[in-house]
């Protein structure tokens, strides 16, 4: 019986995805576009946060790529506010990947502005896939429980900014902010955590200042 010959490979299974992501990133940079990968659990307020952000972004054009398994409610809402938004329906895939985004970016055909890619509502998978973005925005909420950083460490670790939404509800729920922040800071020493309310608009000026700082670099 002949023995097997071992061939060294040492190749990441994400290689193709990451290669496409890097190409998208260069092409966006060249076109003067700064892209954010917006992640968060279903119902965390990703779209509402984007509406609050885009309303406050003066002197900059905003574009949105909406990712959902099905339907286009969010895209229609954004379009009705005058935002150039397009929809991607994955029909079942739980996260957006770079080839999908590559096609959408070509379809949008944009220059000079800010692109928000709203990922599928999911606190698990989106954090694992690079899709050509310059920064990752995590929408977390006070209503999901203070233990989320401990249960979903990758999402909190990879975020460049953590937007803590629904803060208007703090008087009505048990949210242990110290426990939450302890978890966040163990995983992520640098991402700002900004308390906001999608309902009242509170806190979004700070988010927009952070965005403008990033975009002007």
């Amino acid at each position: 019986m002949t023995e097997n010959k071992e061939i060294e490979v040492m190749q990441s299974v994400y290689d193709k995805n990451d290669e496409v992501a890097a190409q998208i990133n260069s092409s966006l940079t060249e076109s003067g576009i700064y892209a954010f990968n917006v992640m968060g659990a279903p119902g965390a307020g990703k779209t509402t946060s984007l509406i609050n952000i885009i309303k406050r972004l003066k002197d900059v054009t905003s574009y949105v790529i909406e990712g959902d398994i099905e339907a286009d409610f969010d895209t229609k809402t954004l379009q009705s506010l005058g935002v150039k938004a397009i929809q991607i329906n994955t029909g079942g895939a739980c996260h957006l990947d770079s080839p999908l985004i590559g096609n959408a970016v070509e379809e949008l055909s944009i220059k000079d502005g800010v692109l928000f890619i709203e990922n599928i509502g999911n606190l698990v998978c989106p954090a694992e896939f690079m899709i050509g973005e310059h920064a990752k925005m995590l929408i977390s909420t006070v209503t999901e429980g203070s233990d989320k950083p401990y249960k979903y460490p990758l999402a909190f670790e990879k975020a460049d900014i953590i937007i803590l939404n629904k803060c208007d509800l703090i008087p009505y729920i048990d949210f242990d902010e110290d426990f939450f922040m302890k978890g966040v800071r163990a995983l992520n020493k640098t991402a700002p955590v900004v308390k906001v309310s999608g309902k009242t608009g509170e806190g979004f000026d700070q988010v927009v200042s952070w965005i403008m700082e990033k975009v002007s670099l």
Partner: peptide, 18 residues
């Protein structure tokens, strides 16, 4: 306080045998 490392985030093909 412990911080995350790359240990546990691997996903690659080390080798194949032919």
């Amino acid at each position: 306080e412990g911080g995350p490392t790359e240990i546990g985030q691997e996903f690659y093909i080390k080798s194949i045998e032919i």
